[in-house]
């Protein structure tokens, strides 16, 4: 029993974090917002990192990794507010196609020449899809109308929800960081506002929420990877915990920024809007709550101290 991420997994995530911090900062988000919001150069950078092929089998030019690694990278994509459709292509569609044995064309994904946007009955849109454009509150999110008769496959749904949860934790961490940095430099009443306990305590509460959402995401990723019978419940737990933490982070971050937080000029809004978007994507809060409820109150899932890893 070892509920820890391995050194290799942490190094992988750190490498992606550093890369995105260096190449996908707020200035890039502002540029994408002002012009075309997809940039082949950014995508090529992700390809050079091997990320579209993260879950593609090595025989097809990928890295052959699993859902825990994918969730780790999805968290970093959230932290960087990545605009390119990496998560949907590489961490939702690829694992789903692999699970169905549909391996044709995955080499092209690893090579970066194929992106996959999968509709699902749970979503009234397809992110980066081909249908008629729909406007999202998130200026970096390209939505299209969903085709009729979209799949309602539960595994696809769970992959989508899990990767949303991972991104939401990353978004929450990023917003906590932005609000904290702002509180250190913004001076009022002759001191940084971050010296006031009213600010400190709100940010500390966000830190608590994020800290205890993160391991729930790892638990869900491991459960889905291993095909555990309880995987759906764990995915819903992850989506619920991550959504609540991210929304708390967003609302606290704008409050700490004060009136500046309500402006378009402060970068916070990119992260906040992504969190709003992902909070409802791949199953509403009510849906995920009901799935946990069915197992926990309904009695089909073993609960109690001796069932920590049920």
């Amino acid at each position: 029993m070892d509920f820890r991420l391995s050194e290799d997994q942490l190094l992988l995530a750190e490498g992606v974090r550093d890369y995105l911090a260096g190449t996908h900062g707020p200035a890039v988000l502002r540029r994408l917002d002002a012009g075309p919001n997809r940039d082949p150069a950014i995508w090529q950078g992700l390809v050079a990192m091997g990320l579209p092929g993260l879950c593609v089998p090595e025989a097809q030019g990928g890295l052959g990794m699993g859902l825990v690694e994918a969730a780790l990278i999805a968290l970093e994509c959230g932290r960087a507010c990545l605009a390119e459709p990496l998560v949907d292509t590489a961490f939702v569609a690829v694992p789903w196609l692999l699970a169905r044995g549909e391996t044709a064309g995955l080499g092209e994904v690893a090579a970066g020449t194929r992106k996959i946007a999968l509709p699902h009955a749970a979503n009234p849109w397809v992110a980066d899809g081909d249908g008629t454009a729909l406007a999202s509150v998130d200026p970096l999110r390209n939505l299209a109308t969903a085709p009729a008769g979209a799949s309602d496959d539960p595994h696809l749904f769970n992959l989508g929800a899990l990767m949303c949860a991972a991104q939401l934790v990353g978004l929450g961490e990023a917003m906590l960081g932005q609000a904290t940095e702002y509180a250190k430099i913004r001076q009022q009443f002759g001191q940084p506002v971050g010296a006031f306990q009213a600010i400190k305590h709100q940010l500390a509460s966000v830190a608590v929420a994020v800290e205890f959402a993160r391991p729930v995401v790892w638990r869900a990723a491991a459960a889905l990877q291993a095909g555990e019978a309880s995987a759906a419940l764990h995915v819903s737990h992850a989506k619920l915990a991550a959504t609540d933490a991210a929304i708390l982070a967003a609302e606290t971050a704008i409050q700490v920024h004060g009136a500046m937080g309500y402006t378009y000029e402060v970068d916070l809004h990119f992260w906040m809007k992504r969190a709003w978007a992902l909070a409802g994507a791949w199953g509403s809060r009510a849906f995920h709550l009901a799935r946990i409820d069915a197992g926990v109150i309904g009695g089909s899932h073993p609960i109690g101290p001796e069932h920590t890893f049920a």
Partner: peptide
């Protein structure tokens, strides 16, 4: 919460 704010967040 003070400890978190000051030692973990650096406020």
């Amino acid at each position: 919460r003070n400890i978190i704010a000051e030692r973990l967040l650096g406020l």
